[in-house]
């Protein structure tokens, strides 16, 4: 059974000493990963390494295998070719295209049960804090069915945040979010990376975040790739990593 910690939002149990020793340096290592679906290779021999505090931005047109890569890292798709290290099920939080919410439960119930299913028991105060963080405090008691798409996405982000897992696998996290929601996401992601977490984010848009270290990875057909001489993202976005 999963080890339950009843505590606050950041995973510090009530009995922990105020300054805990450094968490082990985590890394995600992928070696020669391949994914074949429907008889076609989506990608092959994919290798990369991600360290604590880094984010990997997955780019590419529709159908290029971004979601499949995330699902392989999450363990939902089998990894028949290649090796993945550092993505144990207990270490990751996965946000799919769908929100993973039961529509008949309220926002608060969804969050509480989802985190409990993941092995964490949040105190009521921590739950409220999580909902506040994504701007859903007013809508906490509303059934998920009556929330808007953007609100549901925020709730899903709250779930990822509350899981306190080091590796975040996010598939189009800003889909259906308004400008304010995108800021919420940026805040959450930055805080997560600064606390030593890792993230793999599939996104169509450039995430304008003042991040120190980030890797871009583009999947997709050769014909649609931009000229390698030109940076594939607007120069204004500091998310891109310059060697």
């Amino acid at each position: 059974m999963a080890h339950r910690e009843r505590g606050d939002l950041d995973g510090r149990a009530a009995t922990d000493a105020p300054d805990a020793p450094d968490a082990p340096r985590r890394a995600l290592r992928v070696e020669r990963l391949g994914c074949a679906r429907g008889g076609r290779w989506l990608f092959r021999d994919l290798s990369f390494e991600l360290h604590a505090g880094q984010a990997l931005a997955l780019r590419g047109p529709n159908g290029s295998g971004k979601s499949s890569l995330l699902r392989q890292l999450a363990g939902l798709l089998p990894r028949e070719h290649g090796v993945v290290e550092g993505a144990a099920p207990a270490d990751l939080a996965y946000l799919a295209h769908q929100n993973g919410l039961s529509l008949d439960l309220s926002a608060r119930e969804n969050l509480a049960l989802a985190t409990r299913i993941g092995g964490r028991d949040l105190s009521p105060a921590a739950l409220e804090a999580a909902l506040e963080e994504v701007g859903l405090r007013q809508a906490a008691a509303t059934p998920a069915r009556r929330l808007s798409q953007g609100q549901r996405r925020r709730l899903a982000l709250a779930r990822v945040r509350a899981s306190a897992r080091p590796l975040w696998l996010l598939d189009e996290p800003t889909a259906a979010l308004d400008g304010d929601g995108e800021q919420v996401f940026a805040r959450l992601l930055t805080a997560h990376l600064e606390a030593g977490g890792l993230a793999v984010v599939a996104t169509h848009q450039a995430l304008a975040l003042p991040l120190p270290r980030c890797i871009a990875l583009t999947l997709g057909p050769a014909s649609s790739r931009p000229d390698p001489g030109i940076a594939p993202a607007p120069a204004a976005s500091p998310m891109e990593f310059a060697p």
Binding site: P89, L92, Q98, S102, A114
Partner: peptide
């Protein structure tokens, strides 16, 4: 229903599998 709203795959990823 759980497959449609995505909670099934989240549950499969949970510690119990």
């Amino acid at each position: 229903a759980d497959l449609a709203d995505g909670s099934l795959e989240q549950a499969v990823l949970a510690p119990g599998g």
